[in-house]
Computed example of a mutant assay.
Amino acid sequence: KTGVTLEKILVTHGHLDHCGQAGVLAKELGVPIEGPQEEDRFWIAQLDDDGPRWNMEAHTFEPDRWLEDGDKVTVGELELDVVHCPGHTPGHVIFHHEPSKFAMVGDVLFQNGIGRWDFPRGNLDDLVHSITQKLWPLGDDVTFVPGHGPVSTFGQERLTNPYVSDEAIKRGLPV
């Protein structure tokens, strides 16, 4: 209806609320799936079992392309940088478009929060490292869309996020 042409599905990580229907949608639309990083294969492999456990419909699939840190993906005429950001899940990736100072970060970072690390193979140290050593260097002026909740900027989170602000890191994490 809007004239948009879907060309691919990008997956940040293997949790069912983010990719449980990716395979079904890809087949229906005839488009490929790119992402996440292959360390999330075990999450995707258990989608058929996780769906009923969480009262959601979810189906296992195989991405057409597993992504690695430093890869590029194209969407239309845009080229997005892939940054591997483990911690919430081991194979979590984010997509960054440097020219527009924009990132899609999945469940790594939220406005005033960070992703959970208490799932299998999640790791708080890895998550904090991903945020402070991989996201923050992209620039304070980067606007990000998280997997849940409102948008923010990396700069705002460096000032106010109770988990990963510069001040919180100096004091030690409040978790």
Rank of each mutant, 00 (worst) to 15 (best):
Lys1Asp: 10
Glu7Gln: 14
Glu7Cys: 05
Leu10Gly: 01
Thr12Phe: 00
Thr12Glu: 06
Gly14Arg: 12
His18Lys: 11
His18Ala: 10
Gln21Met: 15
Gly23Thr: 13
Gly23Lys: 12
Val24Ile: 06
Leu25Phe: 13
Lys27Met: 03
Glu28Met: 12
Leu29Ala: 10
Glu34Asn: 11
Glu34Lys: 14
Gly35Val: 04
Trp43Asn: 06
Asp49His: 12
Gly51Arg: 06
Arg53Gln: 09
Arg53Leu: 11
Glu57Gly: 11
His59Lys: 14
Thr60Gln: 12
Pro63Asn: 10
Arg65Met: 05
Arg65Ile: 11
Leu67Ala: 03
Glu68Lys: 15
Asp69Gly: 08
Gly70Gln: 04
Asp71Thr: 11
Asp81Lys: 05
Val82Lys: 04
His88Asp: 10
His88Arg: 11
Thr89Asn: 08
Gly91Trp: 07
His92Asp: 05
His92Leu: 00
Phe95Ala: 12
Pro99Arg: 07
Lys101Asn: 08
Gly106Phe: 02
Asp107Trp: 11
Gln111Arg: 13
Gln111Asn: 14
Asn112Cys: 02
Gly113His: 03
Ile114Trp: 07
Arg116Ser: 07
Arg116His: 04
Phe119His: 09
Phe119Pro: 02
Pro120Gln: 06
Arg121Cys: 08
Gly122His: 07
Gly122Leu: 08
Leu124Met: 10
Leu124Glu: 10
Asp125Lys: 15
Lys134Trp: 08
Pro137Arg: 06
Gly139Trp: 08
Asp140His: 00
Thr143Asp: 07
Val145Ile: 15
Val145Glu: 05
Gly147Lys: 10
Gly147Ile: 01
Gly147Phe: 06
His148Pro: 08
His148Leu: 13
Val151Ser: 09
Gly155Gln: 04
Gln156Phe: 07
Arg158Val: 09
Arg158Tyr: 03
Leu159Ser: 15
Thr160Lys: 15
Thr160Asp: 13
Asn161Asp: 14
Asn161Glu: 08
Glu167Asp: 07
Ala168Gly: 12
Ala168Asn: 11
Lys170Tyr: 04
Leu173Phe: 12
Pro174His: 06
